[in-house]
Every structure is written in structure tokens, then in C-alpha cells.
Design a protein around this nucleic acid. Structure first.
Ligand SMILES: NC(=O)c1ccc[n+]([C@@H]2O[C@H](COP(=O)([O-])OP(=O)(O)OC[C@H]3O[C@@H](n4cnc5c(N)ncnc54)[C@H](O)[C@@H]3O)[C@@H](O)[C@H]2O)c1
Ligand SMILES: NC(=O)c1ccc[n+]([C@@H]2O[C@H](COP(=O)([O-])OP(=O)(O)OC[C@H]3O[C@@H](n4cnc5c(N)ncnc54)[C@H](O)[C@@H]3O)[C@@H](O)[C@H]2O)c1
Lengths: 209, 209
DNA sequence: AGGCTATTGTTAAAATAATAACAATGCAAA
DNA sequence: TTTGCATTGTTATTATTTTAACAATAGCCT
């Protein structure tokens, strides 16, 4: 496989989640247009993505759900579990930790960090919350490779530097403050306001037609 | 202006947020490469986006921060305020309501909905929480146009249908369950797991090099 | 059995997005 | 004043992503 487009990676992750639901319902095979329907994309795109990872379905029966799930896993998952930490266990951090709890994935949140003494030492659905002062030590001890940032905007830069210093390899930044990371660290940023403003733009545009 | 790419819309929204921070710091002009640095993109792309909206900077001085903010506002904002509601005021819903509080934007969260009697009737940073049973009535009374869904996955489809029925024009779905909306309703879905798996994929890939 | 049809896999084309290239120019410094 | 140069605006090029087109064929129906 020479190279998978970013977009394909993102879609494969989504296909897998849809497929897992199908599997749970006892469905053994699925057509490209069924996957497409769930994800609001076209069947062609689904087939193309699946082609890119080298999987082949059965004509008139579609794709074997189980096999496809496993193959996607081989592509996007790491062999070993990847440990993830969440820095800032407020509303958003808590929601994220909860959300991950119990999901079948190679990604596991194994630590939370906070500065608030009321939170340090507690657990959130089983995940221990540590003092952010110990961040480097814990990250290295637990071999945590990915950090999710959900601290207040003002702390973002500082926390990001601490994560990089501790040897983190990927950062997912949910704070409103964009950050810079050195080469070799993968950065993904998401800002809800951008999404909402996009929705609003199209709502407005449509109204003007 | 014939047509703005989706990606440009999203970036304009981000430029504005960066610009607002600059304005707050008393900066009156900004160069394309400064904006680019903040957003981790290239200066060319910034200039191109700005060109697309028909704004012109001053050579050697850059862009007038205030003017650019206003112009972006003209493009992406609605004339009038657009009201937004959040359905499901748990951890994530609460985080979102908080996040929006006090931001200068034409988008305002004016209602939350929940099914939990302990939450109904309360306020979250000033936003009243209503009984989800009254959703249609309140949405129409308040002329709410956009709905954010942060309910548990199992309720997603039902809530989505209720929002559409109430006349909502745009939906931002944060639950793990993809939904279908009729033509004329703009849908945006975001799933954190996709983002995290993407980060993990690149962390893994880089490791294998 | 034989034709029909839904579906896959893949190539080709189109659309969208990002980057490069560079002329124009106005400010700063010599 | 003149030169140098940083910066914009814009066109051209390249890369990426999506969509279309269609041949191949497994299974269904008659
Ligand atoms: N990107 C998005 O879509 C989005 C949506 C909502 C909120 N947010 C942002 O996410 C962040 C968190 O939001 P929230 O609602 O959970 O806020 P919150 O105040 O509930 O949580 C912040 C947490 O960070 C902790 N904290 C503060 N300083 C710290 C430090 N130096 N080290 C470690 N922990 C520290 C606090 O104790 C608190 O627990 C904010 O920046 C908010 O703007 C982003
Ligand atoms: N997409 C993401 O990035 C992301 C991240 C974290 C969580 N989530 C998802 O967001 C959702 C909310 O997460 P959370 O951590 O806030 O959960 P939560 O349990 O804290 O909140 C859910 C809220 O919805 C309310 N609710 C339940 N049924 C309802 C109904 N029929 N009508 C109205 N309200 C109802 C509950 O009372 C509760 O207040 C979940 O689906 C979760 O999986 C998504």
C-alpha cells in the first residue's frame, strides 16, 4: 500500500465504528451503499477507500463485516495498545474520559492530569487523575504517547510544551488556543466554534437563496 | 464573490478568532505570515483566502485587523443573531455552553434541553434548561435555528427527528451515532474518536519509518 | 438454462484545494 | 534620491479528493 489519504484514514475509522454496530446486530455482510448511507457519503467513495486498503468483497453479497473490521484494525491500529492522557479534567475532559470508557479500541486513556487539588487523586470512571506537576514522570513511566488538551486557553501553550518535553508523540488540542509543536509530533486541533460557524454560514446562505 | 470553498469558510472563522485576540492586544495591522503562523498554515494560503473575499491589505503594513474582522463578519455571520440550542446538558453539553459564554459572536446559545428533572429549570452560566418535552414549543417561540446534540447515543435519532420537526435548519451532532436529515437541513458531525485514531495512525506510521 | 440485475473493482475525468512563482510596489535605509 | 527588500495580489501549476463511468460477474428469477 503506497499511501493512504488523510481523509481515507478518517473515514476508515468511521466505517469501523459503523461496522462494529452492524456486527453487534448480527449482520455478517454489508453493501457499500449501506455503509455510505450511514456515513452520508457515496457508495463509490466507500468502495474506493476499501479498494485502497486492498480488501475485496463478494459480488452480490457485499463485504464481510468481521473481516473488514479486522483489516481496518490492521491498518489504523497500532500492534500494541497506545496510552493516552487527558490534561485538564473539567467538563470537557471528563466527557472525553467517559466517552472512551468501554470502547473497543487500541487507544486507552490511562491518566488524567489537573492542577485542582480537589480533583487530584480521584478517579473518573476508573482513570486516575494526577497532579500536573508530575506530568513528565507519569507520562514516561506509563509510556503515554498521545495527549489530549482540555485545559483553559491560557494554560495551553505551557501544557503543550510540557507534553512535548515529556516525549509525547501526538497531541489533540481542544482548547481555543492554537499551539506549535516541533517536527515529529503530530498535531490535530479541533474547535467547535469553527464547526458551528460553518453550520451557521450554510444556514444563512440557504436562507438567502 | 462566486463561491467560497468550505475549507476557506472554516479558515476564515479561525482567522477571525486569532484577529480578535490581536485586536485585544492593541495590534492594528497584521501580516499574512503572522496569521499563518498562528494557524499552522502557509502565508500564501492566508493571502489567497483573503483575496477570495475581496479584501486588500496595505503593502508593507499588512492587513488592517479591525477591517478584516468586520469583513469576515459580513461574509460568514448572519445579519441577525442566530439562536442555538444544546440538547443534552451533561458534561459535554455543559462544556459547550460554558465555552460559548461571553464570546463575541452572532451565534448565541439561548436554550438547553434535558430530560433529567434535576437539571430542568436550572441555568448553566445564564442559559435556561428546559424540558425536552417542550422542545418544539421553545424552539419556535425563540426562533432557534441551530441545534447541537450532546445526548447519549441511543437518544440521538429521536432527538434529531424532534429538532427537524421543530424546524431547525442546522444540526451539529457530537454523539457517536450518525443521523440522517432531510434536504434543506445542514448537518455537521464530529467524532473525537476519529480524530484520535488519526493522531494514533500517524504516531504509529512515524514510528515505523 | 439463460437472461437480468445489483453489485463490485477499477480506470478515467472532474472538482477542489494547496503550493509555487513572480510581478508590482511602497517603505526603509543608505 | 536611489537601492534593496519585504510584502501583497494573482496567475499558473501541482496535488489531492471526489465523482463518474463502465466492464465483469455472481446470484436470482423465470
Ligand atoms: N474545542 C472545543 O470544541 C471546545 C469545546 C468546549 C470547551 N473547549 C475548551 O476546552 C477547555 C476546557 O473546557 P472545560 O469546559 O472543560 O473547562 P473547565 O474549566 O471545566 O476545565 C478546565 C480544567 O483544567 C484544569 N486546569 C486548569 N489549569 C490547569 C493546568 N495548568 N494544568 C492542568 N489542569 C489545569 C482545571 O482545574 C479544570 O479542571 C477550555 O479551554 C475550553 O475553552 C473547547
Ligand atoms: N463526539 C465527541 O467528540 C464526543 C465526545 C465526548 C462525548 N460524546 C458524546 O456526547 C454525548 C454526551 O456526552 P456526555 O459525557 O455529556 O454524557 P452525559 O451522560 O454527561 O450527558 C448526557 C445528557 O443528556 C441527557 N439526556 C438523556 N436523554 C435525553 C433525552 N432524551 N433528551 C434530552 N436530554 C437527554 C442526560 O440527562 C444528560 O444530562 C454522548 O453521546 C457521548 O458519547 C461525544
Amino acid at each position: 500500500m503506497k499511501h493512504l489519504p488523510h481523509k481515507t484514514i478518517a473515514r476508515l475509522s468511521q466505517y469501523r465504528r459503523a461496522l462494529l454496530l452492524c456486527l453487534a446486530k448480527g449482520k455478517t455482510h454489508i453493501f457499500s451503499h449501506e455503509i455510505a448511507k450511514i456515513q452520508h457519503i457515496t457508495a463509490v467513495q466507500v468502495r474506493r477507500d476499501i479498494m485502497l486498503i486492498g480488501y475485496t468483497g463478494t459480488l452480490r453479497k457485499g463485504y464481510n463485516v468481521k473481516e473488514l473490521i479486522d483489516l481496518i484494525g490492521n491498518i489504523i491500529d497500532s500492534e500494541k495498545r497506545i496510552d493516552v492522557c487527558v490534561v485538564g479534567t473539567g467538563n470537557l475532559g471528563k466527557a472525553i474520559i467517559n466517552y472512551f470508557k468501554g470502547r473497543r479500541t487500541k487507544l486507552t486513556i490511562t491518566a488524567g492530569f489537573d492542577i485542582d487539588p480537589k480533583k487530584i487523586g480521584k478517579k473518573i470512571t476508573g482513570v486516575p487523575i494526577y497532579n500536573v506537576a508530575d506530568i513528565k514522570k507519569i507520562i514516561q513511566e506509563k509510556n503515554i504517547r498521545i495527549g489530549v488538551m482540555t485545559v483553559p486557553g491560557e494554560q495551553t501553550t505551557e501544557i503543550c510544551d510540557m507534553l512535548v518535553d515529556a516525549g509525547i508523540k501526538g497531541i489533540l488540542n481542544f482548547t481555543p488556543k492554537p499551539v506549535n509543536v516541533p517536527h515529529g509530533v503530530f498535531l490535530e486541533e479541533y474547535d467547535m466554534i469553527t464547526s458551528l460557524e460553518k453550520v451557521a454560514f450554510f444556514v444563512k446562505t440557504q436562507n438567502e437563496l
